[in-house]
Design a protein around this nucleic acid. Sequence first.
DNA 1: TTTT
DNA 2: TTTT
Lengths: 158, 158, 158, 158
Amino acid sequence: MSGTLNKVMLIGHLGDEVKVHYFEGGGCIGRFPLATNETYTNRTTGEKVTNTDWHNVVVRNKAAEICEKYLSKGDKVYVEGRLKNRQWQGEDGNTRYTTEVHVQDFTFLSTKKESLATGQGGMENAQQNPQMAPQAAPMKSVEPAPAEETDQDDDLPF
Amino acid sequence: MSGTLNKVMLIGHLGDEVKVHYFEGGGCIGRFPLATNETYTNRTTGEKVTNTDWHNVVVRNKAAEICEKYLSKGDKVYVEGRLKNRQWQGEDGNTRYTTEVHVQDFTFLSTKKESLATGQGGMENAQQNPQMAPQAAPMKSVEPAPAEETDQDDDLPF
Amino acid sequence: MSGTLNKVMLIGHLGDEVKVHYFEGGGCIGRFPLATNETYTNRTTGEKVTNTDWHNVVVRNKAAEICEKYLSKGDKVYVEGRLKNRQWQGEDGNTRYTTEVHVQDFTFLSTKKESLATGQGGMENAQQNPQMAPQAAPMKSVEPAPAEETDQDDDLPF
Amino acid sequence: MSGTLNKVMLIGHLGDEVKVHYFEGGGCIGRFPLATNETYTNRTTGEKVTNTDWHNVVVRNKAAEICEKYLSKGDKVYVEGRLKNRQWQGEDGNTRYTTEVHVQDFTFLSTKKESLATGQGGMENAQQNPQMAPQAAPMKSVEPAPAEETDQDDDLPF
DNA sequence: TTTT
DNA sequence: TTTT
């Protein structure tokens, strides 16, 4: 099937901390809300209107660990991924649907934790010596990693 | 405000006809479900898995009319737009949330109606002779139109 | 014709100031170089390699004025647009080709000039009272404006 | 480094066959020109203008082999990748610059070779029975493959 | 020529 | 629930 495209690109601010759930097998999944804003001027009233959209962002495995380590509430981030519908059972027994953005790539545009987190050599170095800083690769695009991951953990339940 | 980005790009097939609702003031809104597919091979079982995601696509005004006229169930289309959360009241009184893709640009990649609609020469021709098909701009990107529209009908309720 | 897509999205830093050329008819065109970086680790040597790509960014009319006013060398910006090939005559009489990114949308991600440029009310205000700050709409996405412009100045020579 | 984004997305038609160069080490690189069109109506004359942009598309390794096998001149394809500047020496000794689109992902939107290549069932089938068409993954997005490749052949000279 |  |  296919010949299809499913792509989302967002720049926004985290509305909350990254929440990571670790699986027994070693994988993990992280989630955070991301806010994007739209501003326009109402034609009739002339007043400026601001509208915020909230996106359910989902990151997995190494990407989740990196986000958990370096991103905080309020930080600005670029995320790229795909839209995914997830359905779940409400307490009333009815099926509910949620749309999530499953991240394939991201770039930090601001991080509160960054300066604290790095000593000399900083995060660049962390990438070259992953054993010394296993979860780090911040402030840079992490294209290869998530791409491989989407391929590697297909047995995870989403 | 802002410095944010909210962009979705999809290539998929219509799961149903375009449903258009016309407002009294002259505007209109169209909706259709769009399917994108994802295929991957399960690591453990080795079996090929296909997963379909359905997207709630929303088009407005002239774009809605063009889509209604030229798109049919099963057609393939490229749409570009922004994610929007819409909330509504369920019959049980609870608030429900739906994520929609509000279209800013689109390109038809296949249309069943095209040959019917235009005779020989098809829609390409229709574009070259707009007086013969005044409301048509099919098989081409209609960037300017939707962009202007998002600006023009901000008093519509979404 | 068409059913085609031509889209570029960049986040990068200005390598120089925005240079604007004003036409007699009232339009204008601005240009600036934008740098994007790519980092990877060489497999064989293990060394980290950084590669910079330079993009010829072109903005027009109001967008050009906004960029000229608020962007400086070193600033970070998101630009979205289309690739355009331009050919010109070299001094040796041979035809040369240059690829440009013609901007349709942009978002400032950092600006040196911003705080200097705004008094109380700041740039948000400038948008609501364009007569008081005719060329301003900084730190926000200016989607509608450039979109309309691409449509309006097609008699300009590019 | 980084916090930058370099992304190109094109839907266009091949202006020529895919030309692949095989390296001794086993890797390969493929190139083809891709045309995108832009149509607009000239404000002053009212005439419809069509403008074609040509893009130098570069694919590598497995992606190059797939493109060579399934794409022909005239076929429509979606490609996603990054802009890259390449410089080379002209015959006159001067340095020339070319901008290329280095593909990270692609989706076939039409292929002439497909029916020939796979008999009934077409390429969809080929995917389901990979042993019958081992190198095929056509008509589908091949995200993982190119992503891994960009990571694997960094010792190639571009 | 930018940035980290 | 973010940001300007």
